[in-house]
């Protein structure tokens, strides 16, 4: 029997290997890469000037602003929630820990459309809190608070699920040493825990931002799609598409695509850093 080096298949399967790689590369180019490239091709189909005019259109600028505001509110809140959840679950033992972890992951399994319907049933005019909100003149649905709340629901697990496994794997010996040395809670967190989890935290925040910026279904339900008022960037893409303004839709979409690509690049950099 010839001895093949460990982890390597004999020469006759080289051809099979090449076929599989070719198939994987070909399918991915057609299925994943083409849609990504096509967005920019279409956005710039009529040149830079038309592209710039589309982006600088007041309705598009307003959509960009609304999406940015939403992300600025949602991401820090979810970072706080992610840290709190990870700290509670990874550094302490209490009954119902497993259930809590499953609960944190639930928004991942619930379609954003369902989340939107839940919020509409709770805060909408016919909703459970509708009469009370109206009596106090508080507008949640069809306004910024509704958009923010649904986005919080959809993106809630992103930071927690990155930080939690890392905190669990690292254990709490270092923190316990800091306690015996007389450090207080804030000192332990900022000087011991935070340096250990900073890349996972940043990675989770990046994913959370990408998802918050791109949320469509849930926001679509609670925003009411009011042109120039509650139209976030993804909703604006749909509106332009329905207006048969394809180049405009692709221009708006290209800004979202750029954010996604930047998020992926940051992810690649952070992963390289975590491995080294």
């Amino acid at each position: 029997m010839t001895t093949a080096p460990l982890g390597q298949l004999p020469g006759q399967t080289r051809r099979g290997e090449r076929i599989l790689i070719g198939l994987a590369v070909g399918l991915t180019l057609l299925f994943i890469a083409a849609p990504l490239v096509f967005i920019f091709v279409r956005a710039f189909a009529q040149g830079w000037q038309v592209y710039a005019a589309n982006i600088l259109h007041p309705a598009t600028l307003h959509a960009i602003w609304l999406t940015t505001i939403t992300a600025i509110i949602v991401v820090p809140l979810n970072v706080g929630f992610g840290i709190a959840a990870a700290w509670a679950v990874a550094k302490h033992r209490f009954p119902g820990r497993g259930i809590l972890v499953t609960l944190i992951e639930i928004p991942f399994s619930i379609s954003p459309i369902i989340a939107g319907i839940c919020y509409l049933l709770l805060y909408g005019r016919q909703g459970l809190l509708g009469p009370w909100l109206q009596a106090n003149d508080i507008q949640v649905v069809f306004a910024l608070p509704g958009i923010v709340l649904v986005t919080m629901f959809v993106t809630a697990p992103f930071v927690a699920r990155e930080v939690l496994p890392l905190m669990q794997a690292q254990g709490s010996e270092q923190e316990q040493a800091a306690v015996t040395l007389g450090a207080n809670g804030w000192q332990i967190f900022t000087r011991v825990t935070l340096p250990n989890i900073k890349w996972a935290l940043l990675y989770g925040a990046v994913l959370c931002t990408a998802r918050a910026v791109g949320e469509f279904g849930g926001v679509s339900v609670v925003s009411g799609n009011i042109r120039g008022q509650t139209n976030t960037l993804p909703l604006h893409v749909e509106l332009l598409f329905n207006d048969l303004n394809a180049v405009g839709a692709f221009a708006a979409a290209s800004t979202l695509t750029l954010i996604a690509v930047v998020a992926l690049v940051i992810k690649a950099i952070l992963e390289g850093r975590r491995q080294s």
């Binding site: 994943i32 890469a33 849609p35 990504l36 096509f38 967005i39 279409r42 994913l207 990408a210 910026v213 791109g214 949320e215 469509f216 279904g217 993804p234 909703l235 893409v237 749909e238 598409f241 839709a249 692709f250 979409a253 979202l256 695509t257 996604a260 690509v261 998020a263 992926l264």
Partner: peptide, 13 residues
């Protein structure tokens, strides 16, 4: 890419 790209953008493209 499918995780990072907003679904509306994917649908449009």
């Amino acid at each position: 890419v499918p995780f990072a790209l907003p679904t509306a953008v994917a649908g449009l493209s």
